[in-house]
């Protein structure tokens, strides 16, 4: 008898470069371990699967005291013009150093592993993002569709 597959349900709600990685890393790993995965992208999280945006996600130094800096500086400096670009470029450098895939590469890896990706319909409505703007393979849906999967999931995380 075939054992019922384990399931993982994720909600990705953040659209910054740093917060785009955790759901995709968990999903690609779980997909590799024969776990059925659904990621529900909502609010800013939709940027992770928006073709116009997912290659240029940014990291915000302001209000992020953990943001590494070449020289010690007060966090309020993060609000100065150019600091987000600087922080993002530093983060991208660190990502490259450890050979991490880019967000578009990781999204493709997940889809190749049959990770199901759903974009939240009210978010699309609110932000004017069209289904054509989303990565091919991503579907659109609402909370009930996610819950239908999550109710039978072994892991549910809100990221």
């Amino acid at each position: 008898m075939e054992e019922k597959k384990k399931r993982m349900a994720l909600i990705a709600s953040k659209g910054t470069l740093d917060m785009a990685y955790p759901p995709l890393i968990l999903a690609s790993t779980a997909g590799s371990m024969d776990v059925e995965v659904t990621i529900f992208f909502t609010l800013y999280g939709v940027d992770i699967i928006n073709k116009k945006k997912y290659g240029s996600l940014k990291v915000a130094p302001i209000a992020n005291p953990a943001m590494p800096s070449p020289i010690p500086m007060p966090n309020i400096i993060g609000m100065l013009p150019g600091m987000t670009a600087m922080g993002t470029s530093m983060m991208k450098g660190m990502i490259k150093k450890i050979n991490w895939p880019t967000i578009p590469e990781l999204v493709k890896t997940c889809l190749d592993l049959d990770v199901k990706m759903i974009a939240c319909t009210p978010t699309l409505e609110m932000t004017g993002v069209k289904k054509e703007d989303l990565v091919e393979g991503v579907t659109v849906g609402g909370a009930a569709e996610f819950l239908d999967f999550a109710l039978d999931a072994n892991i549910s995380l809100f990221i």
Partner: peptide, 14 residues
């Protein structure tokens, strides 16, 4: 070699 989590697992699976 040189790859970090999650890639060794993903590539092994593939």
């Amino acid at each position: 070699k040189g790859l970090n989590c999650p890639m060794p697992v993903v590539k092994t699976k593939k």
